[in-house]
Design a protein around this nucleic acid. Sequence first.
DNA 1: TAATCTGTTGCAAACGTTTGCCGAAAACGG
DNA 2: CCGTTTTCGGCAAACGTTTGCAACAGATTA
Lengths: 352, 352
Amino acid sequence: MPVETLNEEGTVAVTIRDVARASGVHISTVSRTFSAPHLVNPETRSRVLATAEQLGYRPNRAARALITGRTHNIGLIVADIANPFFPPLIKAAETHARRRDYHVFVADTDEDPIVEAELVQALAKQVDGILLCSPRMTDDQIELLRREVPLVVINRMITGLPAVVMDVGQGARSAVRHLLDLGHRHLVYLSGPRGSWTNREIRRAAGATARAAGAELTVLGPHQPVTAAGAAAAGAVLATGATGVLAYNDLMAIGLLQALQDRHVPVPGQVSVVGIDDIAASELVRPQLTTVANPTAAAGRAAVDMLLQQGDDGSTAQINLHTDLVIRNSTGPGPFLPAGATTAEVAAYVKE
Amino acid sequence: MPVETLNEEGTVAVTIRDVARASGVHISTVSRTFSAPHLVNPETRSRVLATAEQLGYRPNRAARALITGRTHNIGLIVADIANPFFPPLIKAAETHARRRDYHVFVADTDEDPIVEAELVQALAKQVDGILLCSPRMTDDQIELLRREVPLVVINRMITGLPAVVMDVGQGARSAVRHLLDLGHRHLVYLSGPRGSWTNREIRRAAGATARAAGAELTVLGPHQPVTAAGAAAAGAVLATGATGVLAYNDLMAIGLLQALQDRHVPVPGQVSVVGIDDIAASELVRPQLTTVANPTAAAGRAAVDMLLQQGDDGSTAQINLHTDLVIRNSTGPGPFLPAGATTAEVAAYVKE
DNA sequence: TAATCTGTTGCAAACGTTTGCCGAAAACGG
DNA sequence: CCGTTTTCGGCAAACGTTTGCAACAGATTA
């Protein structure tokens, strides 16, 4: 009776060797049955598969990783799992990766660039690549890290680095144009965290669009991308005298909405607010938030594909995903129009 | 000149062997420097550490896993990452695990018990244990799977299995008592998904509490735990004539809130609504949701600890975490009381 | 019929660690 | 100063795979 090693659960650990013995072939044949089926006789193959199935054999990924150098794992690093912007992306990436037989490590940096770098380092040797989501590091740091592990960046553009971005510049332009169309002439941009590429893009696009229309745009910030920061900014927003606000993300916009409500400032009667992301909650608050919808799920899937194809060629494509302005109830006509004016009336007014 | 193997990034893969050669010791000494430092002379140790640092050596976890049988990874399986109940738990578990030098695979079952079982199987050989969050499988299935991999269950009680539960029964009792105290005599429980242990606990506790007070409790469901289901149930809720509603979770409660608002049913004027979970959005909607706060972050940390200690002894502890009723604005006096009655007045009335 | 090719399998050397065992040297006790 | 213990470090065998190479049989070609 052969000595079987028991694993910690007290069951027999069945290896390639057991399958080989039971089906009367060499272990290499068993190995090939799984990793290069076309190299083994169909008859033998089915016999091996049958005994493997019967014995409950599962390939040991550590052993496989050791020799092939591919772990079949990928890392996904986000700023804050609890920020509702990320879960749909995580979910999509995870599901997509699993379909390709990859598993996903998810890690959270708490918006801290130092933690971010450490995490990449820690994960580097254990994954085939990392998806860096809205990184807060500098471009230089990222350049350094990409030498240790294949990287795909989401929501940031760095020359020479494969990236998936949601076209937040275009989104910001639509949002600002929407506010201008409604007759607002003085706008505020509630700026997001320092180090965010997205934040720079939005500010630039919003500024350019406002300037082109001869409107004024005041930038407030930087802020942490959370509701509390949006709420805290309410006073400053009102102090500017602006009537239209674009926020870095929906959380901040919602926080602002709440604070304005608490101060009995009518929205959109006195101030119009636009968010970015279209998180689930933006439909749940009242007034419902006008916002720029980001295709986060598509971005997650695209990023996984880019990462897995990266080895094949030296291509460093950059994908730019389209964003959509979703108009809800937090935006309305500017202050010098009759409060009840419809969009059509406003459009007519503006054209005059 | 020795031949160095290059990894896919084109940099040299530095192994224990390189460190050994560079510091003039045997590889076993290098190994021990990292995995059993007390067995090596402090002087040698620091020399090895220095060269390791200088060469940029990182232990290969696959090789380590292969020989020790421990991967230093854990799996975390949740029903739906996009359900805001889970992210705080995931985040806490991940951070806590990382502090103990473990990495976390996160996977999503889409509320499907079949996917759930497959995921456990797929992850089993690649992790040291799995955290099963609010599983939808049957007890038997879970019993079967625990033989393949150490398991800790969250939000479910199965005899003999280590578990962390949030005391949702107690939460439901507080919630129902709160509604009864406000003078509501006919309540509805908006039931959650089939297969949810939590759902059974809530229903049982709510039913018992209502019965003990001689009040009526109608159970509606099962439902998917999403806002749409809560909204869709609005008609049925009103049809029962009940004035107090307890929902399986906040998402459903919020959905219901929206639908009632659309029908111009005043909340809490005509109907009071209580949720469970205390997700971030429950504070953002208007009226703000009265709900049972679950200590999800604490649960995540506790579960990680249990899983990592599990090997040490055969203990299968079950931790029961306290929940808290958070009273906000979605609950108010029952219909036969003056609409503006304060809580104190209500209490007085009920006592009479 | 000999030479070549093709398809299938076995052999054995890796991959980068950990760890039980053993010997050498140092420290200790009497 | 001798015997015993302790500390330290080397040796080599694992762990479960993959994969280049070689062997062999049968089919194909010239």
